[in-house]
Amino acid sequence: MGIIDSNLSLRNRNKLLLGIWEDEDKLVEATSELVHAGVKIQDVYTPYPVHGLDRVMGIRRSWLSIVAFLCGATGFSLAFWMIYYMYVQDWPLDVGNKPVRFSPSWVPVLFEATVLCTAFGMGFFFFLRNRMIWGIKPELLDERQTDDRMVIAVETDESVDEKKVLKIMKDHGAVELRESNGGVQTTI
């Protein structure tokens, strides 16, 4: 498993079957039904986070919190090393006879550095994992998927019973069914 999530790109995919929804409850039902029927869902696109949908799709909890902890630990260590080097090793500074070795006055800088590294480290890995970078072209399946419509995309191959997939979609409130072949969409 690479760091960049390979599931996200739609390039070089087989034919995709697309169902369009306008109601989030029906969308969750349909997703659940498709998962139970053993269909592998490529992804579900929604204009806002639909709670519980990731669990229905069987997406594992992200490692981001562990990454955040590691980044924070790195930030803390770097800051500690920085202060220790500057303040204890290289040039001990006597201010009002206060101790130069570890003292509570180090805490603010240690804390801020930890927060800074956690936030930006986590942000970096978040963008990397989601293959998000400035200027990248979005791969949209419906022009209203960031507005009010939701899309379920199912990638097909020989093992997938297309009729069954389309029937489940239709029975669970899809307002439109399409197929996408190499980026060209046709309504079914």
Binding site: V44, P47, L53, D54, R131, M132, P138
Partner: peptide
């Protein structure tokens, strides 16, 4: 940044 509203990304 290429945002599409993918559920994986939303999670």
């Amino acid at each position: 940044m290429g945002w599409t509203g993918s559920t994986r990304t939303w999670a």
